[in-house]
Design a protein around this nucleic acid. Sequence first.
DNA 1: CGCGGGGTTGACTTTTGTCAAGAGTTGTGG
DNA 2: CCACAACTCTTGACAAAAGTCAACCCCGCG
Lengths: 267, 267
Amino acid sequence: MIRFVRHLPLAESEKRAILDTPREIRRFQRGDTIYRPDEPCDAARILVEGLAAQYRILPNGERQSADLVFPARFCDLGCILFGVSDHFLAALTDVEVVEISTGRVLDLFARYPQIPVLLLHQETRNRSILFERLLSVGRRPAIRRLAHLLTEFRLRRELAGVAPSRAKRVLLPQRWIGDFLGLTTEHVSRTIAKLKAMGLIEQHRNAIVIRDPAGLARLAEFDPGYLHPGAEAPPQPPARRGREGGATVAGFGDRGSGGPKISASES
Amino acid sequence: MIRFVRHLPLAESEKRAILDTPREIRRFQRGDTIYRPDEPCDAARILVEGLAAQYRILPNGERQSADLVFPARFCDLGCILFGVSDHFLAALTDVEVVEISTGRVLDLFARYPQIPVLLLHQETRNRSILFERLLSVGRRPAIRRLAHLLTEFRLRRELAGVAPSRAKRVLLPQRWIGDFLGLTTEHVSRTIAKLKAMGLIEQHRNAIVIRDPAGLARLAEFDPGYLHPGAEAPPQPPARRGREGGATVAGFGDRGSGGPKISASES
DNA sequence: CGCGGGGTTGACTTTTGTCAAGAGTTGTGG
DNA sequence: CCACAACTCTTGACAAAAGTCAACCCCGCG
């Protein structure tokens, strides 16, 4: 149930502390709104199980989604740091969320300085992903946008440990795909049809299955660098101090630099 | 020169430490590329003077810009945290950048845990701003996009301490405006013309001057919440509890901890 | 069964992009 | 100090991408 803590790249003592922190589990079903920006908000929320999507709305009701939230991730730092969240969170599947009160989180920050650093990593990566989404929406034509989104989600699921075969299935209502890509559902539907006609994907019921990951990535001109693949999930044993003027920080030892490259085009 | 440190919401000892850290100043002129994602990168870069823009490019050369970098801000956390930066930084004016080697920055992190927390704040806000940009590009028509961008920049400059009258002048090539908004320069030009015709802005040479800030904000359906205005510049935030040097996270003292109960899942 | 929520399809509209030419500016060197 | 080159911005005619509206299909479900 709190298995998610195990996957964080933190030292044992830090995990201990998190596990010892009082928390509350809340469950939601697919389609529920987990939180909204206009509610008071005094707890950190961490997704434990399921999949959720962050989005904002316009006065006319149009929605734009920024990103998916995967398990073991903070849903909204804004809530602890600013006391408000700046978006809606929707449950894309049945979902479990852990809540830890803001006060306790800040306490953890103070006692375990590695935690803010970890979050800083995650937030920096989150911003990078968002930047890439903006690039898609701003400059790529619909078909590439879609190819890119599908490739990104597949890759992120793999990086999070999902088996490649499973990661090739994307189960996401077209309405949501449109909200990620800034497209209408009609256009999403037509675009999916094109991808299908090209033999890059197939559809089973409401799921998209990537048939040719490499081809899809090529069409998307996908460059995985922005995901900072090296910095992902693999539980990182507590680090000893690095050499060279402290080139590493405990817990994030040798992330990044020179890091492992993931080719977008594996098949 | 390092006046920028004074504006950071940190304790004196922390500012001292930053000031005592060896660093290097580099200067660039308008139009220069300050860094690119394909270069090795082993230092944190903090903008001291001037204005810069972060952008990514597509293989065909199209650009999408994410955000402006204002003075006293880190340009790219990715560089220290992951050893690569994921974007280009262009100097929009003549610019001064301070570089502090990654090793020393990580050392500062370790010795002054408030610093990562401060950066976490900034990065969370940065992501929020980026989210709003995505909302613009994905869902708002060109004229609102532009109105929104102009309003955002004006407001952010005011929040950073620029006099309102000065903040109403936006000096930004249309090429860049297009890169922020995902539009071509031709379309930007036409859109500016419309805003002008509506009496909301005027143009003097290459500068746009906001004539009717309220009207422009209204057209943009601008809601400033995403800027987290409370969390901005004011050097010493209100610490209601422990002062300076203690157990509280500078400026984030005690946000509501005694947890009100949350209602269970809604439908 | 009949209902409803996705998803699909087609005809048509609107927005934005493309291409091309021209007008202002700015800066530079002769 | 002028002339010209190099930008940047503007404008127009046209093309393409994406949106709108409306009907319809397909299933799963009560």
